[in-house]
Amino acid sequence: MKQVAFGTTGTLLPSIVLGCMRMNSADDPVKVLQTAVNNGITFFDHADIYGQGECEKIFAKSLAKTSIKREDLFIQSKCGIVPGEMYDFSKEHIIEAVNGSLKRLRTDYLDSLLLHRPDALMDPEEVAAAFDELKAQGKVRHFGVSNHSPLQVKLLQNVVEQPLEANQLQFGLMHSGMVDEGLNVNRGKEQISQRDEGVLDFSRLENMTVQAWSPYQASLVKEVFIANKRFPELNQKLDELAEKYQTTPTGLASAWILRHPANMQVIAGTMNTQRIEEIAQASEIQLSRKDWYQLYLAAGNHLP
């Protein structure tokens, strides 16, 4: 399993993360958990809203049925979304959310806590106060964000004492805006939107780990692009190169992300044990520069 440095911590962690959003739909969550660990995936990503908290409970219950030690895992959760109502980065909500996750996960601490989608009413001082309290109490070891722009990160970093180690962002072959933006500098507005504000290069400069979520999803149709008849050119290239690298299209789509020098992590949300193995085994594949660009072009992108 390829390892990547987690933010500024200097700690090396698996490049593949198991996303636990669908754990409440797993046929055998114990087997899922054991398969992940057996294949070097010891990093697990949660959120307080996944299954309305049920996914964290199932994870804890499943872990208790294995011989896996809590201290051998890196458990991350997210908070800040009140589904259908609002985003809430108030001190009270953050602390309450963390306490709820700790109870459901049956653990004394989170290795990492991310603020979920940005809160328009965020007060950085409140966030800082919450982080200080959680850190002092030993309930959270590291902090980060999810779906935040560079300016939103800077606004937090200006006040928050702890380093923001990660930013969880959607990225993959068919959601490559962060790369498109960099390739189309100084082009007309019709060629590129600057909506990502250079978040990929910013993350590299700040030593923030980019965690790629929904890596196999097509942006517009909101469905998996692998083996999807809507995308024949991309799948033809995936099949061709998967044979070359002795992997599967899913493994190759993962390797495409990990080939980027930003040292990203891939969040694989599958509960299929065979796919977990495929993705884990593909983590060490090093795509050639030419093959990386061939896949990028096959996904419908263009080079200026």
Rank of each mutant, 00 (worst) to 15 (best):
S25A: 13
G10C: 09
R230H: 12
V17C: 15
E233Q: 15
E233V: 15
D88L: 10
E133V: 15
K57M: 12
N24Y: 13
K244E: 08
F171P: 02
V153G: 10
K61I: 11
M21E: 13
R204Q: 15
R230V: 11
N235I: 12
I267A: 07
G7K: 12
V37N: 06
L164M: 14
E125M: 11
E96P: 01
G188H: 06
V210W: 04
D111L: 01
Q211R: 04
S214K: 01
Q274K: 14
R187C: 11
A280F: 08
P249H: 11
T8A: 08
G182V: 00
I226F: 15
L241P: 04
N272T: 15
A298W: 02
T270G: 09
G300W: 04
M174C: 06
L73D: 08
A120H: 01
T248W: 14
A262I: 10
Q265P: 02
F231K: 02
E56A: 14
Y296N: 03
L220I: 06
M208Y: 07
E125P: 00
K69V: 06
Q152L: 09
Y245C: 10
L156Q: 07
D28K: 12
Q286E: 08
H148R: 03
T11G: 01
Q211A: 02
E197T: 07
S219P: 02
Y293W: 02
T250K: 01
P261Y: 13
M208V: 07
Y245R: 02
F6R: 00
S67W: 08
I279F: 05
L121E: 03
G188D: 08
V17T: 14
A242I: 12
N167E: 06
S62Y: 12
L164P: 03
S176F: 05
A218Y: 00
Q76N: 12
L155S: 12
I94A: 09
C55T: 15
L102D: 06
D119T: 01
K244T: 11
H302F: 09
S77Q: 02
V210C: 09
L102P: 00
L105E: 00
K139G: 12
I226A: 09
G269K: 11
H116R: 04
L12N: 10
D196W: 14
P14Q: 08
A262R: 00
F89S: 09
N235Y: 09
L12R: 13
F74Q: 10
H260R: 05
V82I: 15
T42N: 15
Y50R: 04
E126Y: 03
V153D: 08
P14I: 13
G300Q: 02
V4H: 08
P124T: 05
E85G: 04
V179R: 04
D88P: 07
Q236C: 06
Y216Q: 03
L33E: 03
V30C: 10
